[in-house]
Design a protein around this nucleic acid. Sequence first.
DNA 1: GGCAAATAGGATATAATTTATCCTTTTATG
DNA 2: CATAAAAGGATAAATTATATCCTATTTGCC
Lengths: 147, 147
Amino acid sequence: MELSRRGDYAVRAMLDVATRPADRMTVTKEIALRQDIPPIFLTKIVSSLSQAGLLRTYRGVAGGVALGKPADQISLLQIIEAVDGPIYINRCLIRRGECDRDRTCPAHELWVQAQGELLGLLANKSLADLARRAQELQQAPMAGFAA
Amino acid sequence: MELSRRGDYAVRAMLDVATRPADRMTVTKEIALRQDIPPIFLTKIVSSLSQAGLLRTYRGVAGGVALGKPADQISLLQIIEAVDGPIYINRCLIRRGECDRDRTCPAHELWVQAQGELLGLLANKSLADLARRAQELQQAPMAGFAA
DNA sequence: GGCAAATAGGATATAATTTATCCTTTTATG
DNA sequence: CATAAAAGGATAAATTATATCCTATTTGCC
Ligand code: SF4
Ligand code: SF4
């Protein structure tokens, strides 16, 4: 019932790329440093994100990674499913018939609903939303003590 | 991101007890048979449910288990948390400060919201709701082919 | 061409968690 | 006292998650 580290890392990595100047390439190792993600592990994650088309990667000396499409066309759901595969909150939601009780199981209906809401939320939240919010949070004045 | 087997079993076991005649005791082994749950594993689950007050258990020859309180006062959330511990969909929701980025992390806010919705759904669905729905589903006519 | 810097990918190690069973004890009934 | 049930501790087995290592490939630049 918990998001994998991979998924959390992937979101942070995408956010890191999205909040850098778009004209310069971002290098995986630097993302790892800034975001405190195990560097070699991150290369795997970047690879998945790249295969999903969410990142574009460039090899070689001046290489690095950049967004594969505009940030407002990348949803959180896409990011997470790119690295963790399809999300399901119970196994009967993998596909119909995966659990042979699903026709008569009242819990099944509940999971269908819960999953729908979760996926909806993630599908409607874009990387651009997050990036915007990230800036707000960074600029936010501290709830300071000295007036 | 997936419910544990334990959690799924727990819901089914509770539902099984809730849909039996309340005057007779239900025996764990029989629940296991009916619900197709590994019997010894189920004893552990029953034990957790009992410690959480959701089941009352009785040892000895005429023993067994019964609901610990009325079915409409038992939420799905209680059942699942009784066997799996507190639900959190990302580790920053375990407690404040668990991830030191949580003050400035835009993803954190998303998880807070998602978790709120999920827990709300589970907290508002009672075992009685499920039991009622179970009866409906059993009585429901098949979407038959022969007219 | 050859070196250096970057991603790609396969294999593998390590750790953590989940699932499940075994064995012994305790409790209650008749 | 024999039997049937739950309780609980220890442990096994399986699965999954996390992370690293090593080699290959691509690219820019001198
Ligand atoms: S919730 Fe019901 S249908 Fe889904 S896995 Fe559990 S038993 Fe099967
Ligand atoms: S979502 Fe943000 S706050 Fe939560 S664990 Fe990930 S990085 Fe930390």
